[in-house]
Design a protein around this nucleic acid. Structure first.
Length: 605
RNA sequence: GCCGGCGUAGCUCAGUGGUAGAGCAGCUGAUUCGUAAUCAGCAGGUCCUCGGUUCAAGUCCGAGCGCCGGCUCCA
């Protein structure tokens, strides 16, 4: 198993301080300058903000009178091409602070002046590309002519310095590569991402929907989506029972007082729905499951012999999310966490964390995810507990990561209010990272709820709890799965594993007989005997990403066989239905993710 | 929430203040077909909602709701 980690870009959009180490970063940084040069030449009075390289390209922020349109983007791109042709030298220049301020003031670049005042020392380093000059640490390419392949992609608003409340600038996103082949490949990848968009596939494959009448961010799981979810949940439950967890269920609301005790009303209120009053008592729709699990633990005294206790629940929570952040299944207002809480003695903490890490990687691998980005998030500003507790908790997480030789990056101040956490972002087949798994150490809640166990010495001791979700939320995880597989789910998850297609109406009876036999062997099989041409029905099954199409006509009826067509491998030729069922069943029980390479081996995926 | 864009049939989209349109999907019929779309007919509309301007609003204006791209925030 390999792990790759890229450090989080904690410098943010004021990214002039972002280290531009890699050659491609430098190339893209110069591309951003090229963009800014073109914009300032085309539009008088435009102010420049910042323009760093990013993981996939670059952007530059501008303060403008009116927003840029797509036509503007085309014009800017044209001017950029001209500047590249001119092959302007990119020259490093050093000014005194006074000179620099005078220069940028004269050009009406007050945002740059602000940055210079904040960031520059006595000497102000700038880079010029023709008449365009930018306050910048560099380094840069020698000349604009070095930029061979670039494209502007989109325009959107961004807060000045990334601070909400600051004026919004117009951010132009673009990308550039050393060669036009690389650029083409990247643009193809963007196309591929659009093709895999879970929102489109969710509708086309009839997996889920979101209705304006129901409410934004609230998911309606259609039968096929619900089926896949059930398969995921069944697997999840089996693994948790094997893994030493106890399964529990808890309510969706609880008295507001419970959330006061847990600290949620104090630290998490912005994400909570308003309380509901019932018989003069306020109740709160749950944003998290932990207090309920705590109540179960607290329902009777616990001995050191009982620990660790691991409670797991597919718990549905509701969080208020601002309207602009909602996004298909990825960011919703009601979601089901595959949540669990491990209650243990302090001396058990590290081994429990290691156990969770092993568990999460084994579960994720089943779904075909073997590449991760791992982050250790430390104490945020708004948090509860003592410095020692945070240190102990953070160290425990760190030791667990090191024990398993997992590379990670520290994400400062990104922990939860009650403790630090490990976030695991899974990488999909397009190399995109998705935040799913989270592992959190919590001293705060045990203290708040006075969680104790009776030790060997007969006295009460405080315990520690670990919050963890492996898939994160079933909604988001499903969205990631849809995009990862482009809707072509592996056999163990596919709602329909095979469609029997009779060549003509006189083969319909045989088709239904074959389907019935296959269902008898445990397969999920439909018959498409509609009055349409075979090609039409094959096309439809292909578009629905059904793994197998089983064509039956005179030849098959005669021989008692089917002609199998695989969604990816195409025509596999005649097969014995029982043999096919045996292979599919084997594939399902092994939860095979990768399709086997060739038809000739008789492989089935 | 903020900035920008968008909202017309189930889906993708035309529609320039004056009679609401196409393709696909759906339904009906014909066709009985060998590995990604057979042909014909029919039906389908609160032009997102509310308010305003106008003789007249899908079209112009305002507010709200939702969606899209970002920012910010996050499982």
């Amino acid at each position: 198993m390999s792990f790759s980690v890229e450090p989080p870009d904690s410098t943010g959009p004021s990214g002039e301080s972002r280290p531009t180490s890699s050659p491609l970063d430098v190339y893209r940084h110069s591309s951003a300058h090229l963009l800014a040069a073109a914009v300032t030449e085309l539009y008088a009075g435009v102010q420049c903000g910042v323009g760093p390289p990013t993981e996939d390209g670059f952007f530059y922020d501008f303060l403008t009178e009116r927003p840029f349109t797509l036509e503007d983007l085309a014009a800017i791109e044209k001017r950029m091409t001209e500047i590249v042709k001119q092959d302007r030298a990119i020259e490093r220049r050093v000014f005194s602070k006074e000179e620099a301020l005078a220069l940028f003031t004269a050009r009406g670049q007050t945002l740059k002046c602000e940055l210079i005042r904040e960031k520059a020392g006595d000497e102000v380093q700038c880079y010029a590309m023709g008449d365009f000059v930018d306050f910048c640490l560099g380094p840069h390419l020698p000349s604009s002519g070095c930029i061979k392949a670039f494209k502007l992609l989109s325009v959107a608003a961004a807060y000045w310095k990334g601070i909400e409340g600051n004026p919004q600038l117009q951010r132009i996103y673009g990308t550039s590569f050393f060669t036009s082949e690389d650029l083409e490949r990247h643009l193809k990848r963007l196309d591929e991402a659009r093709r895999r968009d879970h929102r489109r596939l969710g509708r086309d494959l009839d997996l889920f929907s979101i209705s304006e009448d129901t409410g934004a961010g609230l998911i309606l799981w259609h039968p096929k989506g619900a089926f896949i979810r059930t398969k995921i949940e069944d697997y999840w439950r089996d693994e948790h029972l094997k893994g030493g967890y106890d399964l529990i269920y808890t309510p969706h609301i609880a008295k507001l007082d419970l959330w006061k005790t847990s600290g949620h009303t104090e630290y998490y209120r912005a994400n909570m729905y308003s309380p509901i009053e019932i018989e003069n008592v306020e109740y709160q729709l749950k944003p998290m499951n932990c207090p309920f699990h705590i109540m179960i633990l607290r329902s009777k005294p616990r001995s050191y012999r009982d620990l660790p206790i691991r409670y797991a629940e597919l718990g549905t929570v509701y969080r208020f999310e601002r309207s602009g952040v909602l996004h298909g299944l990825m960011r919703v207002r009601g979601f089901t966490q595959d949540d669990a809480h491990v209650f243990c003695r302090p001396d058990q903490l590290e081994s429990e964390l290691i156990r969770v890490l092993d568990f999460v990687t084994s579960i994720l691998r089943t779904f075909g995810f073997e590449q991760y980005e791992i982050f250790l998030s430390t104490r945020p500003d708004k948090s509860s507990g003592t410095a020692e507790q945070w240190e102990t908790a953070t160290a425990a997480l760190k030791h667990a990561l090191e024990a398993r030789d997992l590379r990670y990056a520290v994400d400062p101040g990104e922990g939860v209010f009650y403790g630090p956490k490990i976030d695991i972002k899974i990488k999909d087949c397009l190399d995109r990272a998705w935040q799913c798994s989270t592992i959190q150490v919590d001293f705060h809640n045990p203290q708040r709820f006075e969680l104790e166990f009776i030790g060997e010495d007969g006295r009460a001791h405080s315990l520690v709890m670990v919050h963890r979700a492996l898939l994160g939320s079933l909604e988001r995880f499903f969205g990631v799965l849809i995009e990862h597989y482009a809707g072509a789910f592996p056999l163990w998850l596919a709602p329909v594993q095979a469609v029997v297609i009779p060549v003509s109406i006189r083969h319909a009876e045989y088709a239904h007989r074959v389907a019935a036999d296959l269902r008898e062997s445990g397969l999920r099989v439909d018959v498409d005997d509609r009055n349409e041409k075979m090609g039409y029905r094959i096309r439809e099954a292909q578009l629905q990403k059904v793994p197998y199409m089983l064509i039956v006509g005179d030849r098959e009826q005669e021989a008692g066989s089917v002609s199998a067509r695989h969604r990816r491998r195409g025509d596999l030729g005649p097969m014995n239905p029982r043999e096919l069922a045996r292979r599919i069943n084997h594939n399902v029980s092994e939860r095979v993710v990768q399709e086997e390479p060739t038809a000739s081996t008789g492989g089935v995926s």
